[in-house]
C-alpha cells in the first residue's frame, strides 16, 4: 500500500511539473500575447484572461487529483477518537500500553487509583518478593 501510494505521488509530481513547464513554454510563443476573447460564462472579475490549451489544463487537474489520492493513501492509520475504543485498546494490547517516554503511554491512566503509589506498602512488597524468590528456588530444586 505504501509503495503504491508513493508511486501515485511521484506520478502526480511528474505530471504537475510537466504541466507547469508546458504552460511556461506556451507563454513564450508569439501567439500567446494575443489577448483572448473574454469568457462567455465567467464574470469579468473572475476571468483569467489567458489562452491556455485545454490539454495543459486537463493535465494540471489530473496531476492535482493524483497527488490528492497519493497523500491520502500514504497518511498513517487513524487514531481512535472515541473514549471506549481507546480505553479498550489499552486493556487489550500490550503494544498500546508501552511507555514511550516520560508521561507518554503507560496504559490505563486511572490504574494509579488501585495501585496507589502514595500508599505503597513497601514491607509487604518486600515480603512478597522474597517469598517469590524462595518459591522459585524451591521449584527449581524439586
Amino acid at each position: 500500500m505504501a509503495a503504491m501510494a508513493s508511486v501515485v505521488n511521484i506520478l502526480g509530481v511528474i505530471f504537475l511539473s510537466h504541466a507547469v513547464y508546458s504552460a511556461y513554454e506556451h507563454s513564450l510563443l508569439p501567439s500567446a500575447s494575443i489577448a483572448p476573447t473574454s469568457s462567455a460564462i465567467l464574470p469579468r472579475s473572475l476571468d483569467p484572461n489567458i489562452n491556455l490549451p485545454i490539454d495543459i489544463t486537463l493535465e494540471t487537474l489530473f496531476s492535482a487529483f493524483l497527488l490528492c489520492v497519493g497523500v491520502v493513501l500514504s497518511s498513517p492509520g487513524l487514531k481512535p477518537i472515541q473514549w471506549n475504543v481507546w480505553a479498550g485498546g489499552l486493556e487489550r494490547s500490550k503494544e498500546a500500553r508501552e511507555v514511550k517516554e516520560v508521561g507518554v503511554g503507560g496504559g490505563n491512566p486511572y490504574a494509579g487509583l488501585e495501585e496507589r503509589a502514595g500508599f505503597l506498602d513497601i514491607r509487604g512488597k518486600r515480603k512478597e518478593f522474597s517469598d517469590w524468590i524462595k518459591q522459585d528456588a524451591g521449584s527449581e530444586k524439586s
Binding site: V99, K100, E115, R116, F129, I133
Partner: peptide
Amino acid sequence: TLLLQPPTTSTP
C-alpha cells in the same frame, strides 16, 4: 522503556 515503566504495577 523498561526503566521508565512505573514499578508499582509490576510483577516480581
